[in-house]
């Protein structure tokens, strides 16, 4: 049995992520979940698109495909269907998945190809310097929304549920234990598993949105994460849910017909 550390391409560390970036945490949790599954490095493939999140496969000692912007899921579909014996894990970001790759995202969920998609949602285009993305909250500052974002943000996890993914969960880069468990459940579930991780981007999001320090961002995630069970209870009681909260937890686990499941 491997440990999470055995999966790192140590000759490439330290990675390019900024100080305090949550992406490194998501890599830890994903690798911990994968090594806990007993998967072999030789039969696991990481696929990603473009952006900060998508640099992750480059730090993992397996076969990996760092592709074009938004297309990771289409590439991963090809890998998995051509060779179902491979375990496929996709790293993607909110811009990559929800903006340029939105079409591939909904169709990958609909097809329910057997792979696990981990989306590092930092609510901003980090690598290009902090432009507003489809998940930038309304009113938030970015370099392309200097008067506050005027658009409603996408709820990626709900979108995945609606599109048909077999397992959907959302956690944050602060909830490391819960996140690791969710990813592990995703890896075990046949069909497409989608785990959205709210991650902090102190450099390009926090800095412009009154969360300058990493601890501010962590504190915000900690206090604004609302467990899905609690949300449902509040709703059934008719209690209003405070502004700015986002749900965390397991949104769906089901057994719709899946493609590319290992024979």
């Amino acid at each position: 049995m491997t440990s999470a550390r055995d999966w790192l391409r140590t000759d490439r560390l330290p990675h390019i992520y900024c100080t305090g970036c949550g992406n490194g945490t998501v890599i830890n949790c994903t690798l911990a979940a994968i090594s806990g599954m007993g998967w072999e490095r030789d039969e696991t493939v990481f696929v990603s698109g473009i952006g900060c999140s998508s640099r992750a496969p480059g730090y993992i000692q397996t076969d990996s495909l760092h592709t074009t912007h938004g297309r990771a899921l289409a590439f991963a579909t090809g890998v998995k269907l051509a060779k179902p014996d491979l375990n496929v894990v996709v790293f993607t970001g909110d811009g990559d998945l929800a903006a340029i790759g939105g079409n591939h995202f909904i169709h990958a969920c609909r097809r329910n190809v057997d792979m696990t998609v981990v989306c590092m949602n930092n609510q901003i285009y980090g690598m290009t310097g902090g432009q507003g993305s489809p998940t930038t909250p309304m009113g938030a500052q970015s370099t392309t929304t200097p008067y506050g974002s005027a658009e409603a943000a996408f709820d990626l996890a709900e979108l995945a549920v609606a599109a048909g993914a077999n397992y959907v969960a959302r956690w944050t880069a602060y909830h490391v234990k819960e996140l690791t468990k969710a990813i592990a459940t995703g890896l075990q579930t046949p069909g497409l598993s989608f785990i959205e991780v709210m991650t902090q981007c102190p450099t390009n999001y926090g800095r412009r949105n009154k969360q300058r320090r990493v601890s501010d961002m962590i504190e915000h995630m900690r206090t604004h994460a609302l467990l899905i069970e609690k949300k449902r209870r509040l709703e059934s009681e008719g209690t209003p849910i405070p502004e700015g909260m986002f749900t965390v937890g397991e949104l769906v686990r089901r057994a719709r017909p899946a493609m590319g499941v290992r024979r």
Partner: peptide, 13 residues
């Protein structure tokens, strides 16, 4: 092991 899990730079062991 929370410190190791959250360390974004894989620096704690």
């Amino acid at each position: 092991g929370v410190c190791q899990m959250i360390c974004p730079d894989q620096a704690i062991h």
